[in-house]
Design a protein around this nucleic acid. Sequence first.
DNA 1: TATGAATGAGCTTTCATTCAT
DNA 2: CATGAATGAAAGCTCATTCAT
Lengths: 212, 212, 212, 212
Amino acid sequence: MSGLAPTRRRRDADATRARILRAATLEFARMGFSGARGERIAQRARSSERMVYYYFASKEGLYRQVLEAAYASLRDAERSLRIDALEPRDALQAFCRFVWRYYAQHPEFIGLLNTENQHQARHLRKSARLDELVSPVVGLLGALLERGQRAGVFRGGIDPAELYVAIASLGYFYLSNQHTLSAVLGRDLKAAAQLERHWQASGEMIRRFVSR
Amino acid sequence: MSGLAPTRRRRDADATRARILRAATLEFARMGFSGARGERIAQRARSSERMVYYYFASKEGLYRQVLEAAYASLRDAERSLRIDALEPRDALQAFCRFVWRYYAQHPEFIGLLNTENQHQARHLRKSARLDELVSPVVGLLGALLERGQRAGVFRGGIDPAELYVAIASLGYFYLSNQHTLSAVLGRDLKAAAQLERHWQASGEMIRRFVSR
Amino acid sequence: MSGLAPTRRRRDADATRARILRAATLEFARMGFSGARGERIAQRARSSERMVYYYFASKEGLYRQVLEAAYASLRDAERSLRIDALEPRDALQAFCRFVWRYYAQHPEFIGLLNTENQHQARHLRKSARLDELVSPVVGLLGALLERGQRAGVFRGGIDPAELYVAIASLGYFYLSNQHTLSAVLGRDLKAAAQLERHWQASGEMIRRFVSR
Amino acid sequence: MSGLAPTRRRRDADATRARILRAATLEFARMGFSGARGERIAQRARSSERMVYYYFASKEGLYRQVLEAAYASLRDAERSLRIDALEPRDALQAFCRFVWRYYAQHPEFIGLLNTENQHQARHLRKSARLDELVSPVVGLLGALLERGQRAGVFRGGIDPAELYVAIASLGYFYLSNQHTLSAVLGRDLKAAAQLERHWQASGEMIRRFVSR
DNA sequence: TATGAATGAGCTTTCATTCAT
DNA sequence: CATGAATGAAAGCTCATTCAT
């Protein structure tokens, strides 16, 4: 009994904190930093504005933790990615699909990154956990490129970081700029078929880029 | 009193209006819609907040005009692009360089597009001049693809819009996300040499994508 | 007509500003800095909280101006003091009465000084107008002491600053601490007769202090 | 379990309470009532805000106890004062020095009195222990004046309460207003030499006031 | 005895906007 | 054409205090 009580209490606190963090993630992603409203965060978290300050001290503090959590989630997902057993070309496609699908399934991540870039990554650089947040996937990609090269299916001289940026670009821009693109191109980019076509073409582009 | 006075006044008025529009473009691009401050716009335009309302009626009205002007500038630039005389592969590279250089030289355009996408292109779609703003370059690209195909240097089955999105992706994302990328990749993407390397690799990617 | 309009307008602004300053003087004096409430200041000034920030930018800015104005008023009063024509002993008594009466008639000045001392005179020292606020009366008192000494009615070796502090002490403390003193001594110090008795005794003390 | 545990606990509780009271004394003295922060008190007492309420019920309750304790300390010190054996003039000087030194050594007492006077001694008058807090020194001073008069060294007609107020004024004002005075007079009043000079002059003033 | 979690009310300040001439 | 004065609404944040165990 006595052992449970503090656990329950702590879990309530943790739950409240987590609800606020989740609500804030959505709010910051959709509205940007200045556009985000404490009241909306509190409501969506079924808590009060006061609790936001109780747990996160300030709007900026909350934002920073939201950002760190978003990167941490991405890193977690990246760590779960297993492509070692696949044939190099398949592995590369799997990698692309993983990245693109992550973006598609995490629109809030895209919103946060846009916001953070608007701020010139000021908060990200200040983050004490920055080193933990550095992506392990560039290394993964480097190893894959080497493996493919040894297997004679990839050409040499490709910078893994550059390849990563290219893959990210193709997945990210389509989603992040879908609204202006849809208006300007006169088609609805968010339709599933459109997205799949885009991924197909992008896959082809990456494939051709690395092939001998 | 004479005929000159109103002209001079008109010219001053136009100049003031133009200064406000320019200042607002920077402010909205850097700070987003909610983050933009009327006071800063007025100061940067060497005018007063009151004048901003005098000429543009509301923050949203000002923003819409800023957005329209930004797209109009892009269209102007696009219309000046001449690639008909070039050999198809050279023409495609020239096209890419044009797009990428435009992004690099107009960071405020990137800022505005990010802002507008955050708002799901609400203002863009409301814009009465939307049809004027629709890009002519997809058509241009379609013609080029056909020409290249006929010349036997490009493969068939490429969607011009998709190609345009790919080219835009590779140029835009690198710049728009340079701050978080620099932090996460541990290199300074804004260095000129880095940018040139990126454009080289991106050019190679586009080349390989369309070649037979 | 046209000459009057700006005057009227400016006068309104000045009047609003002045009302706010007066209201704030009372509020800060009575409640101290932390205890002062913007809302009460606005109400007493028949204006709005918003206008307080329009004219004074911040609570601290308002406080500083209140403090400067209070010192400026004292200096104005001091400059109007004429004791040169009086016989030295009479002049000294006139001086004392002037200081003491000023304190009695300006309880807000005492409140402000207490507040400012609680803050270790931080705002006063920051004031750009500090030099203007330095008291001219110590010089006045020095001249008087010399004159009295030459006339053979005052003794030598008296520091004018010390004399000033003594005179101020006797007038200030009685008023500033009247509430606790009344409670502890069991008599009502604010009664006019009590005050007059105190001034009589204090006058006698100063007289004896400087006399040969 | 044994009889020691509750004793120890009680002792810890008393110690915590005492630490809070001490911390609160400093906080209220320095910051005034409105300016005082529960959080700072808790920190300085190495306790928690919750404990402050546990022991003192409310901010006002805490303040009242702080005030009562401060007066009680003064009365304790006053009761230890022995001047009966001294020659009247020496006794008076000893009395002055005692009062002035007490002020100098208890800046928190000055801060509290200023705060309480700002509140028009509301809390002090409400205090149930007010009668205990009434100063015994006026009586002491009355006896001394009579003794000196009988001995032919003091003049008659001096109100002991008035003398007490004068002595207190000269010691209190110098310290309580030292910051604004230092700024306005252009000298550093808190320097030890300055203080001693002030006490010398003040001693002379009191001596001359009572002497025949 | 002790304490982490929670909160309502209210504070200072900011923002986009309008009034009045 | 131009502008200083004014403002309602709401934002972020703080404060003293209570709940629940």
